[in-house]
C-alpha cells in the first residue's frame, strides 16, 4: 500500500511538474494604449478565456463599460475619464479575476475628476490635466513636445511594454516546483505534529 501510494503521489507530482499550469484560476490583464484599454483574460499557462463577461468599474463602484472577451480572450474598452479603472472578469462558474488600471497610465488629455459627468470628454488642452506624474521624467522637454508626438510616444511605448508586462504578470503567478515541495513539506510537518498529540494522548490514556 505504502509503495503504491507513494507511487501515485510521485506520478501526480510528475504530471503536475510536466505541465506546471493552473487550471481553474482565471487571470485578467490590461494595459493602456492611448484612450483604449487593451485587456485579456486567461488561465495562466493554459490558454485564453473566451467569451467571458468583462465589467469595468469606476473607483466609486459604478459601471463604466461592459463587454465580453473575443475568441482570443481579448477585449478593448474606451477610456472616457482619467480615473482608476477596475476590470472585473467573470466566467459565471465561480471564476473571477480583477485587474486595476491606474489613472496615471492614461493620457493626461482626458478629464479626470470623478465629479464630472461621463459625457464630459473634451479637455483636449494638456495643461488642463491636474497632475503630471508620468510625464515628470520628460518634464524639461515637455513644453516643446506637441500633443501628437506625446501621443505617438505613449503609443509606441505601450506597444513595446504591453507584452512584457503581460508576461511579467503571468510569470508572477506561475506555480513553481518549490511551491509544490513547500506545500508537501507543510503536510508532512502537520502530520508530524498530529503524531505528537496522538502519542501524548496515548501515553496518558
Amino acid at each position: 500500500m505504502r509503495r503504491a501510494a507513494v507511487g501515485l503521489l510521485l506520478a501526480l507530482l510528475a504530471t503536475s511538474v510536466a505541465a506546471p499550469a493552473e487550471a481553474h484560476r482565471l487571470k485578467a490583464f490590461a494595459s493602456v494604449d492611448g484612450t483604449t484599454i487593451n485587456g485579456s483574460a486567461y488561465f495562466p499557462g493554459m490558454g485564453m478565456a473566451r467569451g467571458v463577461a468583462v465589467e469595468v468599474l469606476a473607483p466609486d463602484g459604478s459601471i463604466l463599460a461592459t463587454t465580453t472577451t473575443d475568441d482570443e480572450g481579448r477585449f478593448t474598452v474606451t477610456i472616457r475619464r482619467r480615473i482608476d479603472h477596475r476590470i472585473v472578469v467573470d466566467g459565471g462558474d465561480g471564476h473571477r479575476a480583477e485587474y486595476l488600471v491606474r489613472a496615471e497610465e492614461m493620457p493626461q488629455s482626458l478629464a479626470g475628476l470623478p465629479e464630472l459627468s461621463a459625457d464630459v470628454v473634451a479637455a483636449t488642452t494638456a495643461s488642463a490635466a491636474p497632475s503630471p506624474p508620468p510625464a515628470a521624467a520628460v518634464a524639461p522637454g515637455a513644453t516643446t513636445i506637441g500633443p501628437e508626438l506625446e501621443q505617438a510616444i505613449d503609443h509606441a511605448v505601450a506597444r513595446h511594454i504591453g507584452p512584457l508586462r503581460e508576461q511579467l504578470d503571468a510569470f508572477e503567478d506561475a506555480i513553481r516546483f518549490r511551491d509544490i515541495l513547500g506545500g508537501l513539506g507543510w503536510i508532512v510537518g502537520l502530520t508530524g505534529i498530529a503524531c505528537y498529540f496522538i502519542a501524548r494522548k496515548d501515553q496518558r490514556g
Partner: peptide, 23 residues
C-alpha cells in the same frame, strides 16, 4: 490522512483541457 492530503494537494495541478476552459 497525511498521504491522502498530499495527494489531494498535488492532484489540483493535473489539468485536463476542456474547450475554452480547463479543469
Amino acid at each position: 490522512v497525511g498521504l491522502m492530503s498530499a495527494a489531494f494537494f498535488v492532484a489540483s495541478l493535473v489539468h485536463i483541457p476542456v474547450g475554452p476552459s480547463n479543469v
